[in-house]
Design a protein around this nucleic acid. Sequence first.
DNA 1: CAAGACGGTTACAAAACGGTTACATTTTAC
DNA 2: GTAAAATGTAACCGTTTTGTAACCGTCTTG
Lengths: 222, 222
Amino acid sequence: MEQRILVVDDEKDICDILQFNLENEGYTVDVAHSGEDALAILTDEHQLIVLDVMMGGISGFKMAEQLRETENYIPILFLTAKNTENDKLTGFSSGGDDYVAKPFSVKEVLARVKAILKRAQTKTPIKKWSYKTLSIDIVNNNVTINDKEIQLTKKEFDILSLIVQTSPNALTRNDILDKVWNDNEFVLDRTVDVHIARLRKKLVEYGNIIANRTGFGYYLNC
Amino acid sequence: MEQRILVVDDEKDICDILQFNLENEGYTVDVAHSGEDALAILTDEHQLIVLDVMMGGISGFKMAEQLRETENYIPILFLTAKNTENDKLTGFSSGGDDYVAKPFSVKEVLARVKAILKRAQTKTPIKKWSYKTLSIDIVNNNVTINDKEIQLTKKEFDILSLIVQTSPNALTRNDILDKVWNDNEFVLDRTVDVHIARLRKKLVEYGNIIANRTGFGYYLNC
DNA sequence: CAAGACGGTTACAAAACGGTTACATTTTAC
DNA sequence: GTAAAATGTAACCGTTTTGTAACCGTCTTG
C-alpha cells in the first residue's frame, strides 16, 4: 500500500532534503511551506505529517491544534528547536506522535517516520462501540442487543454504526449518503429512509432505537 | 469540567504514586486494587482507566475484555511489562487506547493521560453557546434553558442560535434572512417575524428572551 | 397629533419531510 | 446458471414545518 507523507516546513532546503530521502525510501511525499498550504493540501490519504513547529503564518502549533480538533486522527512528527518547552509539545501531541529536535540528522527522521508508520499500521484496532444495551462490533460485523445477536445487512450495519458513532448528534440523509456510499455511487436520498425502515424493523423489539427529528435527521435514542 | 480517572493496580505503591501525581494535575482519581473492585467502583463519570494488565484475580486483560463487551466505550491506558506480547494488547485495545511499559516514568504516564483525555474531548466538539440561563448546544441541535430541553424546529433553531451568537447586537430582518436562508431561497421578510413569534411562544415561560427595537431589529434580552 | 412605517399575531395554504409498501434491479451464494 | 438475499426506486400517505396574507396595535417622525 502506498504510504503518503506530508512535510511542512517554511525552509525550502529542509523540505527538499526530507522529500528526497523519504521518496528514496519508497514513500510518497507532498510538501507545504506554510500551515495554510498544508491544511489545503492535506487529504485522507496522508498517514503522517512531518511538521516544523516554528513557521510564519499559522505556526506549527496552531496547525497541530486545528488538526486535532478535526475528527480524523493523523500522527504528527514534530520538528522542534532544541529549546522548545516540553509542555507546549505535550499539550498538542498524542500517543501516536513523536518529535525530533533541530538540527536533526536525516537518518534520525527516517527512523522515526518508519517507527510511527509501523505502529500506526500494526495497531489495527478492534472497534467495538456500545451504547447502553446496544453493542456493535465493527470488525466482526456483529450487532448485539442484550447479548442477542441481530443479523444486519452490510448497508444496515454501516448506517447503524455511523449513527451509533455519531451519537448523540443527528445525521441528515445527506450526511448518511456521504459517509455510507462511495463517491461514485449515486442513489436517491430516499434510499436512506428505506434502509432506516428495515433497520427499525429488525430492532423493533428493543424500542425506538433510531429516532428522527424533522429537519435535523436521524439519531440514536437510547 | 471534572476529569475523573480510575487507576487499577494491585501494587499499592504504584497506585499511590499515580494518584498523587494525577491529582496534582487536577484530575479526580479513584483507585482499585483488583479487577473486581474496579468493576464495582467504575461509574459513567470515569473518563479514563489506567490499568495494570498483570494482576491477580481478574487480570487486566480479562477486565478490559469485560469492559469492552459490556460497558460504554471508555479509553484505557494499559500499564504493561516490557515483554508483554503486542498481539495480546492489540487484541483488546481500540483506537482510543494507549499503553506504557513498566517501569514507567511518571512524567510519561501523565503525558499519555493528558493526550488521551484531550483526544477524547475534542472528538465530540460540543459547541455550546450560553447566555445566562440560556444554553444552545449547536452540535446537538438542542436548546436548554435551566436544564430544560426545548424542542425547536430547524429554522427556529437557526434563528435563535444566530441571535445568541450575535448578542448583544441587534439583527434586522434582512440580516436574519441573509444568514439563515440560502442564496437561492426567496421568502418575504415578514416570514422572519412569524418565526420569531413562534420562538417566543416556545420560550415564553423564560421571559422576554428575544426583544426588538423598532428599526434596529431583534436582539437577545437576558 | 396624524400618517406611515414597523412589528405582533393569527389563520390558513403550500411545501418539505419522513414512514411505509410494493416492486424492480443487482449482487451473492450455491 | 439459478435462487435467495440485498439493495435501489417509485408511489402513496399522513405529519410537520415553513411561508403568506390579513388584521391589528404601537412606535417614530414630521
